[in-house]
Nucleic acid binder design. Sequence first.
DNA 1: GTCCATGCAAACTGTTTGCATTCTT
DNA 2: AAGAATGCAAACAGTTTGCATGGAC
Lengths: 164, 164
Amino acid sequence: MHLAAFDEDIDPTEKFREFLQTKGMRLTPEREAVVTAVYATHDHFDAEQWVANLSQRGRKDGASRSTIYRTLSLLVEAGLLRRVARANDREVYEHDYGYPQHDHLICSKCGDMIEFANDVISETLEKVANAHGFRMSGHRLEVEGVCAKCLRPPQRSHRRLDMI
Amino acid sequence: MHLAAFDEDIDPTEKFREFLQTKGMRLTPEREAVVTAVYATHDHFDAEQWVANLSQRGRKDGASRSTIYRTLSLLVEAGLLRRVARANDREVYEHDYGYPQHDHLICSKCGDMIEFANDVISETLEKVANAHGFRMSGHRLEVEGVCAKCLRPPQRSHRRLDMI
DNA sequence: GTCCATGCAAACTGTTTGCATTCTT
DNA sequence: AAGAATGCAAACAGTTTGCATGGAC
């Protein structure tokens, strides 16, 4: 258990390096730029957001569009990121390392994503999966509706749909 | 309550016609071809499936790609169809009229979608939404994993990923 | 020298849209 | 004649890929 606990504590970049090693790949400066950027804040994001940001930084500090996409997929494989939902036709990512499993209420007005964790749901899913002889590896639950902020109508909402 | 009960019983085409009327639109032969095709069996499907099928039928019996896409969106608006998931980058639809709310186990090997209904989940979601002052209008729950059939390995699976 | 990784531009895919034409009323 | 609907082809957006170049060991 000590090892497991420790394993949970090493930082994402290190975890990524380990993952890459097992596949005979290297943690290049570009890849590192992506992990660092993405893990700088615990926010939902999509690929293009980081393309806009990272692709104009100088070399060794940023990465090109293709590298970003390729790296995000690797990070998902590595268990560091999770594809949670889709907003505006874009895949939305979030941290999947050191954070408890949770789902999202997605406001169809402002696009805000509200996280919530609920054990009943995961337990129920386990049961349902078992009952069907299905080996569950994960799930994606998007609850659509309108958030509290947007329900108070007069004041216009400050967030726009395309801001995720 | 009588009206409601009756309303549940009229056939999808009629329901669609009513919906269109409220928007000043007509139930054209093309639109009818789409509803009929789509409601012929209670199966999951994607747009391209029907494009392949309907776009080569003679006029008045089929419809073009654009009309199909446009009609599917109308059917969703009308509450006749639901976008349930995404498989192979395609939006997957299913009937949303006369069928109880349910969710899906999606096999990542063969692509099979197993429906299941579970009250606990919907009740829990209600509670969670309320707790956040969120007005829920629906949800999308995709459970990923491997189905029972694909877990028995030796016999190769008969369904392919790209068959939905 | 070999293998991995990058960036660019082109390709791909599902879906949407502009537009000229046709149908309905 | 006005409005709505169609089909075609082009546009679109996000993502993926082929390929020539560059870097690490």
